[in-house]
Design a protein around this nucleic acid. Structure first.
Lengths: 221, 221
DNA sequence: CAGCGCCTGTCAGCGAATTGTCAGCTTCAG
DNA sequence: CTGAAGCTGACAATTCGCTGACAGGCGCTG
């Protein structure tokens, strides 16, 4: 799960980030409104934790802009204690939940889980693409009914492409999804990963569009 | 299995909690409606035992809010004797079962087992997975018909995996259901527990999918 | 109350699976 | 034809999970 934390106070941001990371999330941070707006508008996050008091573009405006652009990811707003007016405004702006400051980290984690769970919904347990079947409950992939043993990273790649079938997914997007903000890796890591997958699933399972990215399903030129 | 007990009378809550704990459940309690609503909305419980007479937000409203938010966990409602109107309202609010007060603890346990069983799709009181048989009434596990002596924690782990057979259960989920909201433990505690279980039940009883979690049943690669 | 045993968490080390890196090769577009 | 993009196999580093030993805590018993 990939989270965006929007918080201008560097020390607080570091604390919260550490807690969320410890809970198993991939956390990225934005420290001002402009950056937050751009990333929330162009990246796919599973949850955004948004502090309202920001320099530059303020948090509420950022949230309104996202919603105005049709972005529906869950947003958890950190409000000042008992700021009743802010809550009302926030509801209209499209926030999904609130947390008055100061708060217990435990509560932040609990609400984050709830929001993510709600947004994921109860989608189908299996998705089929060509000869592939992806069972999200057993976290297993079958080719023509034959189960394959995939490593965690391999599974996440197949799963992501499967959820975005018939669409060319740029390598940068895949790297973001697989590795989050960690840019330490060689660009070749992804290619090597794809190669290993094709060996297991068959060469036709994943297609390449030179210069654009990878895809599963129908994306013939 | 992780239960939430919502009951405002501290003495009664302690009694019921003791009985449920003795039956092998991880029990958490909430004593008012606000707390109950929040926890039920944000945490994963296998069953919620809900008393209707609560200070603040009353039990029925809490239940309606949960269902309104799309939460489907089984809820067992404790009603006043012969309160016919409450039952009807409860059905609409989404309760799964009723227990008129006063009741025998034995009946509470039986209905709890039944609800949990039903929610995970098993009809019978005993679950068979490979050579294992889990008797949820007697809290006993047998390997090829030979009863094993398991510690309370060991039984809870087997029971949870058995109820969720053929599914990969992430370690974080297991920790939640074994330990509730007590987060003090080392990640290794779970691994040590699994190791002890495998020594008793045989190495094949519990499978590992590196990077994903544990499972019982058919999730082999 | 002291002693004992059982249960369970912690620690440290080991082995293996996973994944990043490198170097050289192939393929494609212009 | 040529350079860049992508592929591949081998190798190495890292991470992850397992295990055995140990210790604290709790309840039971004499």
């Amino acid at each position: 799960m990939r989270l965006l934390l929007v918080e201008d106070d560097a020390r607080i941001a570091a604390d919260i980030s550490a807690v969320l990371t410890g809970a198993g999330y991939t956390v990225e941070t934005a420290s001002d409104g402009e950056d937050a707006w751009f990333r929330g508008d162009t990246e796919d996050y599973d949850l955004i934790v948004l502090d309202l008091g920001l320099p530059g573009l303020d948090g509420m405006s950022v949230l309104k802009r996202w919603r105005g652009n049709g972005r529906h990811m869950p947003v958890l707003v950190l409000t000042a204690r008992g700021s009743w007016a802010e809550r009302v405004e926030g509801i209209d702006a499209g926030a999904d939940d609130y947390l008055p400051k100061p708060f217990q980290f435990e509560e932040l984690l609990a609400r984050s889980r709830a929001l993510i769970r709600r947004s994921v919904g109860h989608g189908a347990a299996t998705i089929a693409v060509g000869p592939l079947t992806i069972d999200t409950r057993a976290m297993r992939v079958s080719v023509n009914g034959v189960p394959q043993s995939l490593t965690p990273l391999e599974y996440r790649l197949v799963s992501y492409l499967g959820h975005h079938r018939d669409r060319i997914v740029p390598p940068t997007e895949l790297q973001e999804h697989l590795y989050g903000d960690d840019f330490s890796r060689d660009a070749n890591a992804l290619e090597a990963l794809v190669a290993r997958l094709r060996k297991k699933l068959g060469a036709v399972a994943i297609g390449t569009r030179r210069g654009f990215g990878y895809y599963m399903g129908e994306s013939a030129p």
